[in-house]
Design a protein around this nucleic acid. Structure first.
Lengths: 233, 233
DNA sequence: AAGTGGTCTAGACCACACG
DNA sequence: GTGTGGTCTAGACCACTTT
């Protein structure tokens, strides 16, 4: 015997398909849906939660439920930045710089990147969106040694492009890590989602063409917004 | 004002630390916990769900809640199989072969791997566990052209090792894809988790040293069981 | 047989978003 | 201000696991 919330989940998804609700279309109010499918709001919300976990719908703040757009196909090994990658797949990217400072390098990073303690590092906190939907929060630590005055530039644009064009730095070796992780605290708040929303934490340690530490990047993605592809030789 | 379920979540985690509940230790019954933290079972379950999303605890079937072990550090680019990788990190791996057949190559795979339609392919369905906990379900498609009789071997052991030692096949080029995805249907059932449990889908397309299609691998992992690390030059 | 987790009901109040 | 999603209560029954 199938539980109600799974039956409702399927019915609801069929209804969405039937109504041809497209990417980012808003669903009716929960109370209305609960009535339509003859169940309680609690149970209906369980169904909504299932569809959310499957990445078919998402919620925004307290504003309601929406149909999830296609995943971005993301290759962290490529030399193109977020901006180009998103635009190249036909979406509209946007970046907001939430914080931009010069600060002492954190201990864990100094250790991992082989930096001297107490040296300074560029820190950037940026929120990025696709077609108006915030999909990731990014902590960026950049070695200022080879790119002074970087923070004076426009950090709402692609960093990689500036590193290459302005400072002649070519990212080469990379170590990429990622693991599923719930979005909580800062990330959840910044992205306007409930704490506990499924996410993906992606970290990237980049060295330049001469093997020098260039950048450390820590990204918190909404779980349904990306598919990662990496080619290994 | 912090909602109750977040407060309870924090208290509960503090309690777990205080009690020094180790990896895979079982939590008390939900009704008991609800009493202890002076709330309803529904609200308590919301707290448990948060900790589950954060990967700190997990549930098994209808048997209760347990403390999550450390993530496996997984490098899909390495030539070591699951068995070696897990053992190398001090855990106990196990594999069960659920299905083992020769079947017609699916259309999507033929297209993706550049195979002739209507050719046959080795198909393996395996469940793998770490320290007794089922953590992934794996669909394996292997090109039988270069390794006949593979299915006659013991498929509960490392395939890679056999490919190398018995057939002199060396995996080289790989395309790796992954994205967060809820475990449902077959995967949820096989792993003994609730449908909708957060997971990670990982696909790996492997070619041998001569650029010939060797294997396609599709793995459904429990979200809290792994951290993926890839090095790119 | 007892206890547990999984599911479900029918309400309620609040804070926030939007018009 | 109105309606929405977010939260919370106090029960209940069932299916399954464990004793």
């Amino acid at each position: 015997m199938q539980p109600v919330y799974l039956r409702v989940k399927d019915q609801l998804w069929q209804w969405i398909l039937l109504e041809r609700l497209g990417s980012q279309a808003r669903l009716p109010a929960e109370r209305e849906l609960a009535q339509r499918f003859r169940t309680t709001r609690v149970t209906l919300r369980q169904s909504l939660g299932q569809l959310e976990a499957e990445g078919k719908i998402y919620r925004s703040n307290r504003r309601g439920w929406y149909v999830t757009p296609q995943r971005l196909d993301y290759d962290p090994a490529k030399d193109v930045g977020f901006y180009q990658m998103v635009a190249g797949q036909g979406y509209t990217p946007a970046t907001e710089t939430l914080s931009k400072t010069m600060q002492e390098v954190p201990e864990w990073l100094a250790q991992r990147a082989g930096l001297a303690m107490q040296s300074d590092i560029c820190y950037l906190l940026r929120r990025r969106s696709i077609d108006g939907r915030s999909v990731l929060l990014e902590h960026n630590y950049i070695n200022p040694q080879y790119c002074p005055d970087l923070l004076l530039q426009d950090t709402d644009r692609s960093l990689w492009q500036q590193l290459r064009e302005r400072y002649d730095l070519q990212p080469s070796k990379r170590q990429i890590e990622f693991y599923p992780q719930a979005l909580d605290g800062i990330a959840a708040e910044a992205l306007g989602v409930n704490p506990g929303t499924a996410g993906l934490c992606l970290q990237r340690l980049t060295y330049d063409q001469q093997g020098r530490f260039l950048e450390f990047d820590q990204e918190y993605w909404i779980h349904d917004a990306l598919k990662v592809t990496v080619n290994v030789a």
